[in-house]
Design a protein around this nucleic acid. Structure first.
Length: 835
RNA sequence: GCCCGGGUGGCGAAAUUGGCAAAAGCGGCGCCCUUAAAAGGCGCUGCCCCACUGGGGGGCUUGCGGGUUCGAAUCCCGCCCCGGGCACCA
């Protein structure tokens, strides 16, 4: 007999799927569209094609494919596309190092991903394949940019931005981790530059509120986004500096502590600083302080345990609630990016203000009493951030601070000195990059159309898209985009006046490309529009999205923002792109994250070569719950390979043996036992599939079924209905394991049953065979297990009690004791409580 | 500091959601097949104690300490440890 030869089987079925285009689905209204089935959009995050696929990819697509197969066999028309997020820094950095154009390295990597996806047997609709670096794709990325521009959602502004000196580019806030460039680890510096932004902050409220619309997202991902958006409720209150006649609004979450404000602080970047101190004795000191702050990195400024520093301005503002004049300072613990860049300082009830007050010997005035009566009134126990009755707050004294909060805000409103306000930590999304390998931003600058020396920003008309990325020689950025060197390309004609104009030379952040790809899949060859409205209406939203948690904030929030913005532009009918999200865990080796430098990487290709794709995929799904991190162990791979081989040999054995007689109408004995096990496995697999994709226990159930078949088969051959039962067990195992090991599943099914397993509906458990006539009754005395007794499944309470008391093992513990309580759970357990 | 996860045999894990703790896998031990090995098949395998020719019996056990309950890995209260996110955000 030929042993299990995954190579041959896998090649065979991969050819079938490719030739028959098995996984392609048509759009509504197109030939081949099946309107009898409900749709299901199963999507894994598209890979960034750099080098070869790694095990993280194998996991993501194995999990997604199992879901896609399961849905198909449950009667859904599943759309399951694939593409490549093929613009971005790594290809460009490689180009700078080796001189190889980014396109060449990227397309080589794409070819490698394509080959391996086929070798893994992932059920992809290849007719919908796309790559974000192709003009056919980025043309529409540019088109979306123009729509956002029209809506005022894309704008150009000078702003302090995070600049990475190594990569010589600006970064999005999200790409700065602990003050360092996410990619290269270099400390970022602040620069003031003209940049393009998307107004994601306009959507902060909806991004929060619409968590409601999601069906099932991991709680921690929602929490991370919520933290990132960072909504705070409070009030904006205006403090006036009479000496220079300026109003300074501040944002505070604690308007109830307004009477405790004893000083006022501006951020070093505050635009009015200059006017406040120009020509005053404080000018020199303030300027020096501001310059020093500007030189410091965000990391240095944000360091923990940093001493509070600052400089008095020699000016004061008036507290609107009590008319008190309080001194002004500049200090770097106040951030320009948040709120208004200025704060009222309440040292008695805010830790940071308290530290500053101590450092500068400023008054600390308690306005809320603490809980501890001993320290309630004096300066001990300060700063006190909690609740309590108000003191030193005029007519609000004695009221609870929560109550006073509302009244103070109402009063500010009446007096027009402030109003309720909400602030967000979220900043607008900086999307321009001074880099080559990205989609060009489709605008030109025209001096003739401009005013007062400033050129006009003229959008490139839709019909002139795409603005193609020109070929260049030198990819290294020199503080301006490498595109600036392509002078023939930069010099263009103004679409508005026809005069000479210059192209924008920045490209878009790659997160822009990946913020809408899931829509393009629905109509990827459309040359007239980004997508056909009816296709989008039919398939969206994505029913199940699968990917790593590392995208919990960036990609997932940007895609949510895009969806809402496109809906507002009237070109999309959904508010949320991904109804269900599954965040897969990481695969480690030797307990550590894989890295080339550590030398603990796992190459999927190597394992696929040695054991076959079915083994590699099934192992990955068997390692543990897929949402959790899991450690790759070679012996575990072999264990799964042993299991698949065992199933294979079982198939060969039944195939070679007698056809056997027909299945019995009322199976008995071991025939029934094996059939019951098969139906138990069907039931278990189906439930675990639905319950959060617990593939590890699904596979364990199939293993149990195969083990049971091995235990019983030799006694069953020749029995009435015996061979048929073994055959049923093997075919059922193949059918259940198909979503993980599609080649083996398809092959065994074809041999034992004929036809295509993926066209078979998912098996249904026979409830007759799920229940048995007898059950194991657990007998406890005082909650401790004392005996197990076979009992009639239908037996009543009294019968079970009698049975339990009759047991010798039980009665031993009842001797000389009084039974004070009897608990009977029919079909399960008897517990006798004795004294 | 705040917010999420998580802690169960030698290892990664199960436990139908309050009812037999440890399924399936790995590792380990033993047996069968074999001239031999590999492959394969079968069995045992949480810890401790008593008994042992053979069969057996008892206690303990889900990070720690309490509680609720006839009964807790599961629910409640208080701690400890590990991982992740946010953090000078007013």
């Amino acid at each position: 007999m030929a042993g299990y030869d995954p190579k041959e089987i896998e090649r065979k079925w991969q050819r079938v799927w490719a030739e028959e285009k098995t996984w392609e689905v048509a759009n509504p209204g197109k030939p081949g569209f099946d309107d009898s089935k409900p749709k299901s959009y199963v999507l894994e995050m598209l890979p960034y094609p750099s080098g070869e696929p790694h095990v993280g990819h194998l996991k993501c697509y194995s999990v997604g494919d199992a879901i896609a197969h399961f849905r198909r066999r449950n009667g859904f028309q599943v759309i399951h596309p694939m593409g490549y997020d093929s613009f971005g820094l790594p290809a460009e950095n490689n180009a700078i190092k080796t001189g190889e154009p980014p396109r060449v390295a990227t397309e080589r990597s794409i070819a490698s991903f394509q080959r391996q996806f086929r070798e893994w047997g992932i059920s992809i609709d290849w007719s919908r394949e796309l790559a974000t670096h192709t003009p056919e794709y980025y043309r529409w990325t540019q088109w979306i940019f123009l729509r956002l521009f029209e809506q005022g959602l894309a704008y150009r502004a000078e702003a302090p931005v995070q600049w990475c000196p190594k990569d010589a580019t600006v970064l999005a806030n999200e790409q700065v981790v602990d003050g360092r460039c996410e990619r290269c680890g270099t400390e970022v510096v602040q620069r003031k530059l003209e940049q393009w932004f998307f107004r994601i902050t306009d959507y902060a409220e909806r991004l929060l509120a619409d968590f409601e619309l999601l069906e099932n997202w991991p709680e921690h991902v929602i929490t991370m986004q919520r933290n990132w958006i960072g909504r705070s409720e409070g009030a904006e209150v205006t403090f006036r500096c009479e000496e220079v006649g300026l109003d300074f609004p501040v944002f505070t979450t604690r308007p109830d502590t307004l009477f405790g404000a004893t000083f006022f602080v501006l951020a070093p970047e505050h635009p009015e600083l200059e006017r406040l101190v120009a020509g005053t004795p404080a000018e020199a000191a303030v300027r020096e302080y501001v310059d020093r702050a500007a030189r410091e990195s965000a990391e240095e400024r944000g360091a923990e345990d940093r001493e509070k520093t600052g400089v008095p301005l020699g000016r004061s503002v008036v507290n609107p609630v009590n008319g008190e004049e309080i001194p002004m300072f500049v200090a770097d613990y106040v951030l320009m990016e948040y709120g208004t860049g200025a704060i009222m300082a309440v040292p008695a009830h805010d830790e940071r203000d308290h530290e500053f007050a101590r450092a500068f010997d400023l008054p600390v005035r308690r306005v809320i009493e603490g809980e501890d009566p001993d320290v309630a009134r004096d300066e001990q126990g300060l700063p006190y951030p909690g609740d309590g009755p108000m003191v030193g707050s005029g007519r609000f004294d004695g009221k609870g601070n929560r109550e006073a909060y509302a009244e103070i805000v109402a009063w500010l409103n009446e007096e027009r000195r402030g109003e309720a306000a909400v602030n967000y930590r979220l900043r607008d999304w900086l999307v321009s990059r001074q880099r080559y390998w990205g989609a060009p931003i489709p605008v030109v600058y025209c001096d003739a159309c401009g005013e007062e020396g400033a050129p006009a920003i003229v959008p490139v008309p839709d019909e002139q898209l795409p603005v193609e990325l020109p070929e260049v020689e030198d990819y290294a950025p020199q503080g301006r985009s490498p595109l600036a060197a392509a002078e023939d390309w930069v010099a263009t004609e103004c679409p508005r006046c026809g005069g000479p104009a210059r192209r924008e030379t920045d490209t878009m952040d790659t997160f822009v490309d990946s913020s809408w790809y899931f829509i393009r899949y629905l109509d990827p060859r459309n040359a007239e529009a980004a997508w056909d409205a009816s296709a989008a209406a039919h398939w969206l939203p994505v029913d199940q999205y699968i990917g790593g948690v590392e995208h919990a904030i960036l990609h997932l929030m940007y895609a949510r923002f895009f969806t809402k913005a496109l809906a507002d532009c009237g070109v999309l009918g959904v508010q949320e792109p991904f109804a269900n999200l599954f965040a897969q865990g990481m695969i480690t080796r030797d307990g550590a994250k894989m890295s080339k430098s550590r030398g603990n990487t796992v190459s999927p290709a190597e394992y696929v070569e040695r054991y076959g794709a079915d083994t590699a995929r099934t192992y990955i799904c068997f390692m543990g719950p897929p949402e959790r991190d899991a450690d790759w162990v070679d012996e575990g791979v072999e264990g799964v390979n042993r299991f698949l081989s065992r199933l294979w040999r079982l198939c060969e054995e039944v195939e070679a043996g007698e056809e056997g007689d027909d299945p019995l109408a009322t199976p008995e004995g071991d025939v029934r036992t094996l059939l019951a096990k098969a139906h138990w496995a069907i039931d278990k697999a189906t439930r675990d599939f639905q319950r959060g994709f617990q593939f590890n226990t699904v596979i364990a159930a199939v293993m149990e079924l195969v083990n049971e078949a091995y235990r019983l088969k030799d006694g069953l051959y020749g029995e009435p209905g015996g061979t048929a039962a073994v055959r049923f067990a093997a075919a059922t195992a193949a059918s259940l394991v198909f979503p993980f090991a599609p080649h083996l599943g398809a092959e065994i099914w074809e041999r034992l049953r004929g036809g295509r397993v993926w066209e078979e509906p998912w098996p249904q458990a026979d409830s007759q065979l799920l229940s048995s006539e007898t059950v194991t009754l657990v007998v406890q005395v005082n909650g401790k297990l004392r005996d197990r007794i076979e009992a009639d499944a239908e037996a009543g309470k009294d019968e079970l009690l009698a049975l339990a008391r009759r047991s010798e093992k039980v009665s031993r513990f009842l001797d000389g004791k009084e039974v004070v309580k009897e608990i009977v759970v029919p079909g399960k357990l008897v517990n006798l409580v004795v004294r």
